[in-house]
Design a protein around this nucleic acid. Sequence first.
RNA 1: GGGAGUGUAGCGAAGUCUGGCUAAACGCGACGGACUGUAACUCCGUUCCUUCGGGUUCGUAGGUUCGAAUCCUACCGCUCCCA
Length: 293
Amino acid sequence: MTKLVVIAGPTASGKSDLAIAMAQKFNGEIISADAMQIYRELDIGTAKVTADEQTLVPHHLIDIIDMTDQFSVADFITRADEAIADIVSRGKLPIIAGGTGFYVKALLGEQPLDFVASDAQEVSDLKQRELPDLMIELQTLDSTLANKVDQHNKQRVIRAIQIARHGVHEAKQVRPKYDTLVVGIDWPRDILYERINSRAQIMIAAGLLTEAQCILDAGGGNIQAGKAIGYKEFFPYLRGDTTLDEAIAQMQQDSRRYAKRQLTYLRHQIPGLIWLDGAQSQAELAARIESWV
RNA sequence: GGGAGUGUAGCGAAGUCUGGCUAAACGCGACGGACUGUAACUCCGUUCCUUCGGGUUCGUAGGUUCGAAUCCUACCGCUCCCA
């Protein structure tokens, strides 16, 4: 079975550095599992590895689409499976590094994702409607599903309606199964928060605002890329509605909350995940890989 | 020294005139949680203490009252204005 190392963890926990170190040590290549680093133009705000770092170790699933494009877990799975096969065929170790727990979970899932026939037009039509109205439709279409979804969560209700309307279809092909070593990087909460706060300042100095302006011009909050933390907080500032300090504080706040959500996700949604002490993650992971490979 | 205002849970802030329905709205923060096709999304819960029976609160100390964050007195702190 194909062996796979998965490095997860909250934002600013040091996943990229750890992945590079492990890739160098164990002849690996890195696959990013990150819902925002897939965008070409989002570099600074997504804390993407630099071009220099990419010359050290080959990276995959970074810079693969334009910032106005849509992307989904299913796209990720397809491409990640391909990248893994490619890396393995060249005799190297695939290392997944990413903060998008949902992508990681889907990649590791033994069940293939169900496919639902639906299009963007349908989704935007559903979006126009009020939540109670949507729930009524879902209730009549499929009451079991209606009871299962979070009734306050419009996004999930819309998805449930699509499933109820079109039904689920078997995935076209069976996905490969992987033999995985899954780790998560853990820091004391206050240290993680400090890392997040100071990284925001570094990003600003590196030219984050130019990128944010770029995304604002491309559609701001209306496009998927415009929902990324590190950009959306600066739209009000760029429009002249808030001060820079307020925007930075907001970004730090959002990052901290995001980190919390990631931690919750990893704790409960990724079975078998081994926590690594942030300060010792390189040594700890190297030891584990050595005894596992 | 004189005048005006103010002190409420981690923070901000209602409630005070018209005492009981107030362990005290709401916002923020913090913490916990959900999440199989937007996931850096979207959504939910807890937040004085508790052995879950209760207990102790609204600057402090008294007082009025069956009953006080709310009324009265004194004191303390903070802010602003005049000196």
